[in-house]
């Protein structure tokens, strides 16, 4: 085990904070219970490890992200097509937004969600 004394940043990437915050906000708002989420996430962690994932926890938020997507779909709070469409729309938005300008989704992409 590594020496654990170094202070750690709470979130390494902004999206780690984003999915962590969303999951807590959804549970706090009653969209699902935390134990149901924890059980789904625990299963995903086990699968990732069994599939040869790292043992140092470095893929923790990657697994969280995939687990959150499948959990939201399972709970009927999201659907795969909308997630895929919105990901593509965000990609387009980044690629078509001039450097320095705020990146926003077109109203078409938003209404399609």
């Amino acid at each position: 085990m590594p020496p654990p004394t170094e202070p750690e940043r709470p979130f390494v990437e902004p999206w780690h904070a984003q999915i962590f915050g969303m999951t807590h906000a959804l549970a706090a708002a009653g969209s699902f219970t935390w134990p149901d989420w924890a059980s789904h996430f625990g299963e995903a962690l086990k699968l990732a490890l069994n599939a040869g994932g790292p043992t140092d926890g470095s893929d923790y938020y990657d697994v969280w992200l995939v687990a959150l997507e499948t959990f939201l779909i399972e709970q009927d709070l999201a659907d795969r097509d909308s997630l895929d469409d919105l990901r593509a729309a965000w990609t387009d938005a980044y690629l078509s937004t001039p450097h320095g300008a705020p990146v926003e989704l077109s109203s078409k992409a938003l209404s399609g969600a």
């Binding site: 999206w15 969303m22 990657d62 909308s82 980044y94 450097h99």
Partner: peptide, 24 residues
Amino acid sequence: HTLLPSDPALRAKAIETLLVGKGL
């Protein structure tokens, strides 16, 4: 164009856009 975020970052944005749009 603006630098494209990583795939996980884009997926997280997609989740947030969808859930905010649904009022969840």
